[in-house]
Design a protein around this nucleic acid. Structure first.
Lengths: 338, 338
DNA sequence: CTGAAAGCGCTAACAA
DNA sequence: TTGTTAGCGCTTTCAG
């Protein structure tokens, strides 16, 4: 050994086992026929040396990369880790490996992440949302690999899409609330110009209210901090300044849960005096004293289907263009009058 | 164009701009001196074509990869996404790119993830915990790049480590509880043989109790499901079968929060009749009606320092071996008697 | 079943 | 400032 810290190569294994590099390569990839004796000799040598194949070289030579890029806006949202988990689970059996990137809800950052990912020539890309910079969209269109946009289907996908209509989710919730007899409705959500899905839900929600001849009686937006605490604070503030509200619609379950805990604390009659609803159907809700009304965002199913689309596509014979629109289910819980 | 879907290469940009491949490469990497005129011509051509450099080829040629592998046990734990976020934030300015992998608390799975990562020859590896399969440990030792083990420092790191002593965290909590006068103590946690950190905390906790001549009066372990709901259920069950308990120690804040909500619900006097404590100091606690006693796991700081160690190391001049032990802070909240 | 030759797309090193 | 030449470590292809 000239330099003990030089990374090992196929050649080292070849020399150690007295077999050609080519045959070593075949053994290590389980490709082609190799005699049992040779195979064992090679495996033994590779293990003894602690050889780890160099996928960079392998990928360059074979023009094949077992990576799937996954771009999401945030990790702290609790929603995305769940999608990632279901993507991982599906890809596990396919030999594909997910690689995650986070855009922090910034379009330019997303563009940079997509560029970086494409430069590794992945087998596919999964990206949250349909809104991208022109440049990012162009890159995705020209990538020559399956592109699946997830979470949302209100818009024009680059290629395939799996998600729900957030506009419709907002509409359905508004309908249910009105049907239950609530009329003075307040809204709380994040102040994030680039959270298009939250915006679409609010748009749909407002549209139905407008059709019913009522408007949002109050609304408030927050940023940063603990969502549960924010929900509590905002609810207190809103009920103080608009005491006649009879319903609070939250853009996510965490702030909704905060609001619910506040109301229970104060002994406010829920859902009699006031109703509450969130969005996402996160696990957390199971542990609350009263179940918050919510709408399931189908996160696990979205991840599953997106991964299957990416995995199922052969590099050749690209068809693409599937759009899967899942239907979110309203979970009335115990915070909407029956 | 022969095949419109053939990925573009440097050669395409070279031909389109009338400049050699080498010069194009220099422009695209901002390396070496290139005249302004040439540079602009190249940039224009690259942009017009929509060229995305092939990092696989680049990495093979330069023997340099700007990737840092990050291996964590779980994404659903709420703790790890936060560590990832702080790692990302630090690496952002260094030109390094984190690549995440999840082991699901399975040693063999972790070994596979590490193997896969090393096969891409990353610039460094960050891995949660000090316990690995022999084979994984050997791979990390021979990787020839900085390896930082995070979260825990109770053990022998492969190279560097940044974390807290969970054994000590358990001890400190036990001391505080005993000092507050509690004597009949129950414990609840996850049933995960491979969650070494939770185990170490419990070990330390028990050791102090033993020194004080008291044992755990009751304990229960769960798996799966919503942690908040599990905390609620387990607490109800435990208080029913052991009504004389005066303290409940939870292995994480989520189940602790569930237990706290249960107690508040039932009108149990906290912390008078019974005290409660969790671990991690998650954001969520801010929104609870009463703040749960907990201990900060220093997640953000751990991620920050680990990323800095990986980033600060030059491939040559590897020193390694830093061990940073942070000191978790006890947050008494409102669930331990003063 | 095994091996030799030719390159994958890029960059280090050197030359002009 | 620009270009040329040789690989990086592997796999494809073709020949034994």
């Amino acid at each position: 050994m000239s330099d003990p810290r030089r990374p090992l190569t196929l050649r080292d294994v070849s020399e150690a086992s007295g077999v050609s590099e080519m045959t070593v390569s075949r053994v290590l990839r389980n490709r082609g026929d190799v005699s049992v004796a040779t195979r064992e000799r090679v495996l033994e040598a590779a293990k003894a040396l602690g050889y780890v194949p160099n996928k960079i070289a392998g990928a360059l030579a074979s023009q094949r990369v077992n990576l799937v890029g996954v771009v999401i806006p945030s990790l702290s949202n609790m929603v995305f880790p769940e999608v990632l988990t279901s993507i991982s689970a599906v890809l596990e059996d396919t030999g594909l490996q997910p690689v995650f990137g986070v855009s922090n809800y910034q379009p330019e950052r997303e563009e940079a992440v997509i560029y970086e990912m494409l430069s590794w020539r992945p087998s596919g890309i999964i990206v949250a949302g349909l809104e991208h910079t022109d440049s990012a969209r162009a890159m995705l269109e020209n990538a020559g690999v399956p592109v699946v946009e997830i979470m949302d289907t209100d818009g024009s996908p680059v290629d395939s899409a799996v998600g729900i209509s957030h506009e419709r989710a907002g509409r359905e919730m508004a309908k249910a609330i009105i049907a239950a007899g609530y009329r003075k409705i307040g809204f709380m959500g994040t102040r994030m110009p680039n959270d298009h899905r939250a915006r679409k839900r609010l748009d749909g929600f407002r549209a139905v209210l407008a059709e019913a001849g009522i408007g949002l009686a109050d609304s408030e937006f927050y940023e940063g901090g603990s969502a549960l605490a924010k929900g509590r604070e905002m609810t207190e503030a809103m009920l103080t300044r608009s005491p006649d509200l009879d319903f609070l619609y939250y853009s996510n379950d965490m702030i909704g849960a905060g609001g619910l805990l506040y109301c229970l604390d104060k002994g406010i009659d829920v859902p009699g005096r006031i109703g509450l609803a969130g969005f996402n159907n996160v696990d957390l809700l199971d542990g609350l004293p009263v179940r918050l009304a919510t709408m399931d965002a189908c996160r696990a199913e979205i991840g599953r289907q997106a991964a299957m689309i990416v995995a199922g596509r052969h590099p050749e014979g690209l068809i693409g263009g599937e759009v899967v629109t899942l239907t979110p289910k309203l979970e009335p819980g115990g915070t909407i009058r029956q």
